[in-house]
């Protein structure tokens, strides 16, 4: 059998990459990947192929050969005709579908980690600056494990009486109310959530909820209640302890000297 041309090989590799991303990663082993991300990855694949074929002149010429032949070779007039019909037709169809496509509503680009204010507040009480305010029970972890445990237990109760409707039994953001919420509730089992923010940050987000988001956090659209209306300061700190205890992820701390 004739060895396929370099052009064909590249074309096949390109398509395979797409299939891999779209159906294997985005289907068999995980959830579907958004088109824009696939597009980004495919652009990279395209660049990679382009780099590979064009970095050496001989290979570049070999790659271009079928294109050249199709364009000018006397013996390839049928093929040329086919492409001369096919490509404009494809372009025609492509343009049509693009124009006729129904517009989709704008997504909800939301600031996931809004900028916290300088001071941490509970109602009107200033608890310190965002950097410095600490969980008053955190130190028990080292110096009084019993008390620490009891605070975690309190936190557990607070969580299951208030939070789990949305954030779920397993703290994975899949509570029984979660389906109808947009954006979805935070998933504390995600390693990107707890370890990236300080306890004071969580205190702020819990106590002020969706309505307490700052202007720089717009366009916000969070169903998170203003929990300071329902919970005491201690309860909020305790529930933060519980979150980290249950998931095993520690909120961000700031090392010595800050």
């Amino acid at each position: 059998m004739k060895k396929p041309s370099l052009f064909t090989i590249c074309f096949v590799i390109f398509i395979l990459c797409w299939v891999f991303l779209r159906f294997f990663i985005g289907g068999v082993i995980s959830k579907p990947i958004p088109n824009s991300v696939i597009l980004m990855y495919m652009a990279l694949v395209f660049i990679a192929i382009l780099v590979h074929i064009s970095v050496e002149d001989t290979r570049f010429r070999e790659f271009l050969r079928p294109i050249h032949e199709t364009l000018v070779d006397e013996n390839r007039s049928t093929r040329r005709l086919v492409f001369a019909v096919l490509i404009p037709l494809l372009m025609c169809g492509f343009t049509y579908t693009n124009i006729a496509k129904k517009a989709n509503p704008p997504g909800d680009p939301r600031t996931v980690h809004p900028t916290p204010p300088d001071n941490l507040m509970y109602k009107d009480i200033v608890l310190g600056t965002m950097d410095k305010a600490e969980n008053p029970f955190r130190h028990y972890e080292k110096d009084n494990p019993e008390a620490y445990k009891s605070h975690i237990e309190n936190g557990r109760t607070v969580y299951y009486q208030n939070c789990f409707y949305c954030h779920g039994d397993h703290l994975d953001g899949k509570g029984h109310f979660a389906d109808a919420l947009n954006p979805l509730p935070a998933n504390f089992q995600d390693p990107g959530v707890l370890p990236n923010f300080s306890e004071s940050f969580f205190f702020w987000r819990i106590s002020k909820g969706g309505p307490g988001m700052p202007a720089s956090g717009t366009p916000w659209n969070s169903a998170m209640p203003i929990w300071e209306d329902y919970l005491t300061q201690d309860e909020i700190w305790e529930v933060i302890l519980f979150l980290s205890d249950y998931t095993g992820y520690k909120p961000r701390t700031f090392g010595e000297g800050h």
């Binding site: 088109n35 991300v37 989709n104 680009p109 996931v112």
Partner: peptide, 8 residues
């Protein structure tokens, strides 16, 4: 976060 580059 893909919220601003993905459709609902």
């Amino acid at each position: 976060t893909l919220s601003s580059i993905s459709t609902a």
